[in-house]
Simulated scan of single mutants.
Amino acid sequence: MQTPAQNAQLALLLEVAGTPKPGNVDRHRDLTDLRFEHFLAGAVGAQRGLEMAQNGAAVGPSFEQAVAEMADQGGGNTQFGALLLLVPLVRAARDDLTKPVVEGVVEGTTVADAAAFYRAFEHVDVFVSDPPTELDDLDVRRGSEAIPAIEDRGLTLFDILERGVPGDDVAREWVTGFERSFAAANQLADANGALSERTASVFLSLLGDRPDTLVAKRSGEAIAAEVTDRAAALADRNAVQTDRAAVDAFADELVEHGINPGTTADVTAAGLFIALEHDILEI
């Protein structure tokens, strides 16, 4: 039986192996500066941070460690958002991987966890929106320089992420008890076909359910909504199994235009982990 940390690494590997995932790196598609093998190396690099969470370390330091070593490969940021979901899920799996337990883990984070989260931004380049002027001292891109402001305001990591809703759906998972992640796990169990196809189908379904917040930040809400509508139409007819060519064409088009639904991939990875921990996936 695999440990939670091992299942988290496996979830990262299965996520990137899911094919086709429109706009994202998969087995058949690389981005300009981000390749399939970078994701494999990132998943391996995250091991020690995930093991820290599994062994009871606090969420913030575990996340910082996972990110620091995830980023120690040529692609840089491969799985920052996914690790922000997986670390508290791994920590919760020490007791019982249920929504109430995960909620307790994230709501119990501290100011020190928030400080570690900010330090993690010094290891990797993460696309974030500019904060309101009055919150400029809390801009995550300031890294360690923002820690005095966090401490002065007594902000926990949960507080920081709560401020990211509704603009960031990784943060939204923290606030909603990982609602979509648990739903994705159930979808994976109910899907048909090889696991790579099931992963791709669930990714497409998630993308068709809500506009990807990374796409909205980078390309605008109108583009994000259009991508969601097209994904929903493909998901409704189970196109990964019934019309692979149509999904492949959609995937190629998004890559060509630099549209990367990375947040949807993060939630997919979290769903894979939950499904693995609940033993509802056969591998």
Score class of each variant (00 low, 15 high):
1 M>N: 11
1 M>I: 13
1 M>R: 05
2 Q>T: 14
4 P>C: 07
6 Q>M: 00
6 Q>E: 07
11 A>D: 12
13 L>Q: 12
18 G>L: 02
18 G>C: 11
18 G>N: 01
19 T>S: 04
21 K>E: 08
23 G>C: 03
23 G>V: 05
27 R>W: 07
31 L>I: 13
33 D>W: 08
34 L>C: 02
35 R>L: 05
35 R>T: 04
36 F>V: 12
37 E>D: 14
39 F>W: 09
41 A>T: 10
42 G>P: 00
43 A>Y: 06
43 A>E: 10
47 Q>R: 14
48 R>N: 14
48 R>T: 15
49 G>P: 01
52 M>A: 15
53 A>W: 10
53 A>F: 13
63 F>L: 15
66 A>V: 14
66 A>D: 01
72 D>N: 13
73 Q>P: 01
75 G>E: 03
83 L>K: 07
84 L>V: 12
91 R>M: 01
92 A>L: 02
93 A>K: 11
95 D>Q: 14
96 D>E: 15
101 V>E: 15
103 E>W: 05
105 V>N: 06
109 T>C: 04
109 T>Y: 02
110 T>C: 00
113 D>P: 07
114 A>E: 00
116 A>W: 01
119 R>D: 01
121 F>K: 00
124 V>I: 11
128 V>P: 01
128 V>T: 15
132 P>D: 02
133 T>V: 11
134 E>T: 06
142 R>V: 09
145 E>K: 15
145 E>D: 14
146 A>F: 14
148 P>E: 07
148 P>W: 11
154 G>K: 10
156 T>M: 03
158 F>L: 00
161 L>Q: 10
161 L>N: 05
162 E>T: 07
165 V>Q: 12
172 R>S: 15
176 T>S: 15
178 F>W: 07
179 E>V: 00
179 E>F: 00
183 A>T: 10
187 Q>N: 05
187 Q>A: 08
188 L>W: 01
188 L>E: 04
190 D>V: 03
191 A>E: 03
198 R>D: 05
198 R>C: 04
201 S>G: 15
207 L>A: 09
211 P>V: 12
221 E>M: 12
222 A>W: 09
222 A>K: 09
224 A>I: 00
225 A>G: 10
233 A>M: 04
236 D>F: 00
239 A>V: 01
240 V>P: 15
245 A>Q: 11
247 V>G: 09
248 D>K: 03
255 V>E: 06
256 E>W: 06
257 H>F: 13
257 H>V: 09
258 G>M: 05
261 P>M: 05
261 P>R: 09
262 G>W: 14
265 A>S: 13
267 V>C: 08
268 T>Y: 02
269 A>R: 03
270 A>M: 07
271 G>Y: 02
271 G>R: 04
271 G>W: 05
274 I>S: 12
275 A>D: 14
276 L>E: 08
277 E>P: 07
277 E>N: 02
279 D>T: 05
280 I>W: 06
281 L>N: 03
281 L>H: 05
281 L>A: 01
282 E>Q: 12
283 I>A: 09
